[in-house]
Measured scan of single mutants.
Amino acid sequence: LTELETIYVTKEHLQETDVVRAVYRVLKNCPSVALKKKAKCLLSKWKA
């Protein structure tokens, strides 16, 4: 997740890969609050 925060991701990348699905899975299933927060921030950033 940290690496995903530092790289530039285009909408095309998100549509062509399962990155969003994987990050969403972390948000829903990971017991770590810190990782959930990171995943939520990434998804919000990409949605904007």
Rank of each mutant, 00 (worst) to 15 (best):
S44L: 09
V26Y: 15
K28N: 04
L4M: 11
T6H: 08
K38A: 12
T6D: 12
C41T: 10
L43P: 01
I7Q: 11
V9C: 08
K37V: 02
L14Y: 09
S44G: 09
R25K: 05
L43G: 00
A39H: 03
V20P: 08
C41V: 12
T17D: 05
E3S: 08
V23A: 04
Y24A: 11
Y24L: 14
Y8F: 06
Y8L: 07
I7E: 15
L42V: 05
L43K: 00
T2C: 04
L14T: 15
C41Q: 15
D18F: 14
E3R: 07
R21V: 00
C41F: 11
K45E: 01
A39F: 14
V20Y: 06
A22N: 09
A34C: 13
H13E: 14
T10Q: 13
K11E: 13
H13K: 13
I7S: 13
V20L: 13
A34T: 08
L43I: 14
K37I: 06
I7H: 07
L27H: 00
V20T: 05
R21P: 04
A39N: 03
V26E: 01
V19G: 09
L1N: 05
E5Q: 04
Y8V: 11
H13T: 11
D18G: 15
N29R: 13
A22M: 10
E16Y: 11
L43W: 13
L42P: 00
L27I: 10
E3T: 04
K37W: 02
T6Y: 04
K45Q: 01
V9L: 07
T17R: 09
A48T: 13
Y24C: 11
T6F: 07
T17E: 06
A39P: 00
A34M: 08
R21E: 02
L4N: 15
K36L: 09
K28V: 09
N29P: 00
R21W: 03
V23K: 03
R25C: 00
E3K: 08
E12V: 02
T2D: 13
S32M: 14
R25L: 02
K47F: 13
W46T: 02
V26Q: 08
E12L: 01
Y8C: 04
L14F: 10
I7D: 14
W46L: 11
L1W: 03
W46A: 13
V23I: 14
S32H: 13
V9Q: 15
L4Y: 06
E5C: 00
T17G: 09
C41K: 14
Y8H: 09
L14R: 14
K38D: 00
C30K: 06
C41I: 08
L27R: 01
V20F: 12
V20A: 11
Y24Q: 07
S44P: 00
T6P: 05
E3P: 04
E16P: 11
V9N: 14
K45S: 03
E3V: 09
K45H: 04
E12G: 03
V33F: 15
A34W: 08
L27D: 00
E16R: 13
E12C: 01
S44Y: 05
A34Q: 04
L42S: 01
V33S: 12
K47V: 11
E12T: 10
L14N: 14
V33K: 15
K36Y: 12
L43D: 01
R25I: 01
E16T: 09
L43Q: 03
C30E: 00
L4V: 07
P31D: 04
S44E: 07
L14S: 15
L27N: 01
Y8E: 15
K36H: 02
A39Y: 04
D18C: 09
S32K: 08
T2N: 12
I7N: 12
C30D: 05
S44K: 06
Y24G: 06
K47T: 05
R25V: 01
E12Q: 06
A22E: 06
D18T: 13
T10H: 07
V19Y: 03
T10K: 08
K28F: 07
S44H: 12
L4H: 12
L14K: 14
L4I: 08
V20N: 02
L14H: 15
K28A: 04
V20W: 12
Y24H: 04
E5G: 01
D18Y: 12
V26D: 02
E12D: 08
K36R: 10
A39E: 00
K37N: 08
P31L: 15
V33E: 07
K38L: 10
I7G: 14
S32D: 05
L42I: 06
K36V: 12
V9Y: 08
V26T: 15
Q15W: 12
K47S: 00
A22K: 12
K11G: 11
L1S: 04
H13I: 02
S44M: 08
C41Y: 03
L27Y: 05
K45V: 00
K45D: 04
S44D: 03
K38C: 13
R25Y: 01
L14E: 15
Q15E: 11
Y24P: 02
V20R: 06
A39M: 11
L42M: 08
I7W: 02
K11D: 11
K37G: 03
A48V: 03
D18S: 15
T2F: 04
H13A: 08
W46Q: 01
T6L: 03
T6C: 07
K37L: 04
K37Y: 03
R21L: 01
T2A: 05
V23Y: 02
N29G: 06
L14V: 14
T17I: 02
V26C: 13
Q15T: 07
R25S: 07
K38H: 03
K47Y: 02
P31F: 15
P31W: 15
Y8A: 15
C30L: 12
S44V: 04
V33R: 13
K45W: 12
T6A: 05
A22W: 14
K28L: 07
V19Q: 04
S32V: 15
P31G: 15
V26H: 07
A34S: 10
Q15N: 05
A39V: 13
W46K: 00
E16I: 06
R25N: 09
L27C: 00
E12A: 04
E16W: 05
R25G: 09
L4W: 03
E12R: 07
V33Y: 06
K37H: 03
K45P: 02
C30W: 13
V26W: 15
I7L: 10
L14I: 13
E3C: 13
A48S: 12
C30N: 06
T17M: 14
I7A: 13
D18K: 09
V9F: 12
T10R: 10
S32F: 14
H13F: 05
K47I: 04
A39W: 10
V33D: 10
V9S: 12
V26N: 08
E3I: 09
T2K: 13
